[in-house]
């Protein structure tokens, strides 16, 4: 299948400052793709180039399998990091307007707006002006505005920054629904735990370059090696002699083992169970945070 998003060698500088050196990545359709990196890594600039808000100095953007056109942008729901709405407009007018900008006729959007407002619990505020709503309510309206035209691709820049806890749950639920419906989600964040919970694919960006990219599970394996934690009811011997274990650090009844390249965890567990009263055998894979620190260190 054609990737939903394909960025080839994107580069952007502002004066002498190079914000994005070289970003190449692909987002498979139906995936939840996390664009990770610390603040100032070039995430927002990359997304802005993807959205045709900034023109790249070099590189290309392909969407839905072809070079990007302005029409493609109507198939995207974009929630920028710096976001806001017209304060003097009513909730319904605002949403109708955002729908129209994406080619949605008023009579098409009105029923959708109604059911969305029902869903986020703001049905009674349809006629209220935005400035009369609380910040949390405004965030909900903003999310509705992003998804109203039922985009095939949702792009969220730091979606969780500034969200209150209730909305964090709402946003996560909505994203889960979207994923379940087979749509593609690309979001950026500097909070690794969030990405770890939500993403199936990631790209780590540091200093304007992709430091690391791929399916999350595979990256964890790659970075953790295949590391497991073993606990037994009795003292353990040196485990490095066991078939499939490349390395072992034993401290009486606890051990950290690193599997040999072709070995599978469950085979090793079977062998261990035959010899020791094993109480625990768990994957000791690194957190994204650890992977990120290592990747950045490697890149430097």
């Amino acid at each position: 299948m054609q990737p939903a998003v394909s960025l080839q060698g994107l580069r952007k500088s502002f004066g002498d400052f190079v914000a994005v050196h070289d970003v190449t990545l692909e987002v498979a359709p139906g995936s939840v793709f996390g664009l990770l990196g610390p603040n100032g890594a070039g995430k927002t600039t990359t997304i802005r180039m993807l959205m045709d808000i900034l023109g790249p100095d070099a590189g290309e953007v392909h969407l839905f399998g072809h070079p990007r056109t302005r029409e493609d942008l109507d198939r995207i729901g974009y929630l920028p990091e710096e976001r806001g709405l017209y304060r003097k407009m009513t909730v319904t007018d605002q949403l109708v307007f955002l729908g129209e900008l994406h080619g949605l006729k008023k009579r098409e959007s009105l029923p959708r707006i109604e059911s969305w407002l029902e869903k986020v619990g703001l049905a009674d505020r349809a006629k209220a002006k935005l400035e009369e709503l609380s910040k949390g309510m405004q965030q909900k309206i903003q999310l509705v505005g992003t998804l109203l035209h039922e985009p095939e691709l949702v792009i969220l820049d730091e979606p969780f920054s500034g969200l209150d806890p209730i909305n964090q749950v709402l946003f996560k639920d909505v994203l889960d629904e979207y994923r379940a419906a087979g749509r593609t989600i690309l979001f950026s964040t500097h909070v690794m735990e969030q990405a770890e919970k939500l993403c199936d694919h990631i790209a780590l960006i540091a200093h304007g370059r992709v430091a690391l990219a791929g399916p999350l599970a595979q990256l964890k394996r790659q970075f953790g090696g295949d590391s497991f934690l073993v606990k037994a009811a009795a003292p353990l011997d040196d485990l490095s002699g066991i078939d499939g274990i490349a390395e072992a650090h034993v401290e009486t009844d606890t051990a950290r083992v690193l599997l040999a390249p072709e070995a599978e965890g469950h085979d090793v567990l079977k062998r261990l169970v035959e010899r020791y009263p094993i109480r625990e055998f768990s994957s000791d894979e690194p957190t994204l945070e650890e992977i990120f620190v290592k990747a950045v260190a490697d890149a430097a």
């Binding site: 959205m51 974009y78 709405l85």
Partner: peptide, 16 residues
Amino acid sequence: EEKSNRVVEVMVSSVT
């Protein structure tokens, strides 16, 4: 106003 509201970011994603 659009700038200080940050509406402009939302706008430029669908219009030039």
